[in-house]
């Protein structure tokens, strides 16, 4: 095992690649997957710049360059969906990190191993649930006539029922709650794994010095969690321009009155294709997403390099 870690150098200073062949072979299926799924479709991007012409084949239509993009910028659509995508992602990253970390620290305080395992597994169940199922769970809560919130909660409190699926202003909160409820199990898992690696010696030493519970959390757990937090944030930043389609399309049940707060780029691209039936215009949406997403990753990486160089992606 040791030999794999200390890399022997050749005379001219180059690494001996032969030793790494097994590792490359291991990576091959993954690389092939990425190539087929992420690189080959790049060729199709040209459709967004062409006129649709089936008789010549979709890749042979005349070039129209940016004509297919015009409808995006004709109105404020491009702005609304970009704003929604970025702001929701920022919100989810911040709230997700804080909530995930807090709950993980709390879970860590549960002394009965069995109880901790059970709670953790329960928290993880929603993560594996399909958004379509979640959307019906939400409907059971939010339905105007039969929903739990209107019929039980608001009625008991003596508040007028709300028509949830036509009132846009509540949806940022609803979507936040749903996304956190669904995603929390996974972030707890990440943070708990990290917390378990903290040696008990730290806590014992702190106890000897008379540190309170709160001080242990603040001065031991949080600093130890920092790399995990940064990793999670970077992973989310990389997906800044992608939204969870299921969350934004299924949960509001595609209700038109909510479009202003639920339309993200993915949702818009889907609706554009289904509604327009025009491949070129809907791929224009996709290209716009990729282009702005690329710029965003470069920018966020620059920022991370400034803050903590060893955590930057490149």
């Amino acid at each position: 095992m040791d030999t794999a870690v200390t890399v022997p150098k050749k005379k001219n200073g180059k690494y001996n690649l032969r030793r790494f062949i097994p590792f490359y072979l291991m990576a091959l299926p993954g690389l092939a997957y990425i190539f087929i799924n992420n690189y080959m479709p790049l060729y199709g991007m040209q459709i967004a710049f062409r006129k649709l012409d089936y008789s010549a084949g979709v890749f042979n239509g005349p070039w129209v360059w940016f004509d297919n993009f015009k409808f995006l910028f004709q109105t404020q659509e491009a702005w609304v969906m970009t704003r929604n995508t970025v702001l929701y992602n920022l919100l989810f990253i911040i709230v997700g990190t804080v909530v995930g970390m807090t709950v993980a620290v709390l879970f860590n305080e549960i002394r009965t191993r069995l109880a901790q395992r059970i709670y953790q597994s329960l928290a993880l169940i929603p993560y594996f649930m399909s958004m379509v199922i979640v959307s019906y769970l939400c409907f059971a809560f939010l339905s105007s006539d039969t929903g739990f919130i209107n019929n039980t909660v608001l009625k008991t409190l003596g508040i007028e029922p709300v028509s949830w699926y036509t009132t846009a202003k509540h949806w940022p909160i609803i979507l936040l709650i749903v996304s956190q409820w669904k995603g929390i199990g996974f972030s707890i898992l990440m943070y708990t794994a990290r917390l378990l690696t903290i040696s008990d010696e730290y806590y014992e030493a702190a106890t000897l010095d008379g540190a309170s519970k709160w001080q242990k959390v603040w001065h031991i757990m949080l600093p130890m969690l920092k790399p995990a937090i940064i990793l999670m944030v970077i992973l989310s930043l990389g997906c800044m321009f992608y939204s969870d389609f299921g969350l934004f399309y299924q949960i509001p049940m595609n209700s038109g009155a909510l479009y202003q707060v639920t339309t993200t780029i993915d949702v818009y691209a889907f609706r554009a294709l289904m509604g327009l039936g025009d491949i070129t215009m809907s791929s224009a949406v996709g290209v716009y997403q990729s282009a702005v997403g690329f710029i965003l990753i470069i920018i966020s990486n620059l920022i991370i390099r400034k803050v903590s160089k060893e955590n930057a992606l490149f």
Binding site: K70, F71, Q74, T75, G256, A257, A272, L276
Partner: peptide, 16 residues
């Protein structure tokens, strides 16, 4: 272009 844009707006309102 205009048809695509106006249809997108229309979807938001007509059903409601």
């Amino acid at each position: 272009t205009e048809i695509a844009s106006t249809n997108a707006v229309g979807q938001e309102y007509t059903t409601a």
